[in-house]
């Protein structure tokens, strides 16, 4: 038992931060915001969230991928690397548009076109609220 406690304490000491990552907190809040604004019925919510989660995961992966590519070349790049970056950005934007087209069809089939439009508004509103909150904090 003492050995196990010792191992646990040792392993815990390797993890200085137990708190949830900041981005996760914002993500959780964004989801909650959307959930409230859309006023989904139980049956709509059951079908909407799995699809929206998948869409969101893919969208985040695209943005992260592009950002990483830019960061890797931030200290300097050749013309070829710059051309590759520009090409990647074009492909990413195309992929985002294609994702939106595909998933908006799927989401529309579940919650209807009105709530789909509201989803866009809710995302925008959350963005504005976030920026406002951060600005107030910095002031």
């Amino acid at each position: 038992m003492r050995t196990i406690v010792f191992i646990l304490v040792f392993i815990c000491s390797l993890f200085p931060r137990l708190a949830m990552a900041q981005n996760d907190r914002v993500e959780a809040l964004r989801m909650a915001f959307i959930n409230k604004k859309l006023e989904l019925t139980v049956s709509e919510a059951e079908k909407f969230w799995p699809i929206y989660n998948e869409y969101n995961d893919k969208l985040k992966a695209l943005k992260r991928n592009l950002k990483q590519a830019y960061r890797q070349n931030a200290s300097g790049m050749t013309e070829k690397e710059a051309a590759d970056l520009v090409h990647l950005e074009a492909m990413t934007r195309q992929a985002e548009a294609d994702l939106y087209k595909t998933y908006s069809e799927k989401i529309k089939a579940v919650i209807g076109v009105l709530k789909l439009a509201k989803l866009h508004l809710a995302e925008e509103e959350f963005r504005r609220e976030m920026i406002k909150t951060i600005r107030e904090k910095n002031d």
Binding site: Q22, L29, A32, M130, E136
Partner: peptide, 16 residues
């Protein structure tokens, strides 16, 4: 959980 005040300490968010 819709308390935006909870995240006032955040100054950076990747997806903004």
């Amino acid at each position: 959980d819709l308390n935006l005040e909870e995240i006032r300490d955040l100054v950076e968010y990747d997806d903004l």
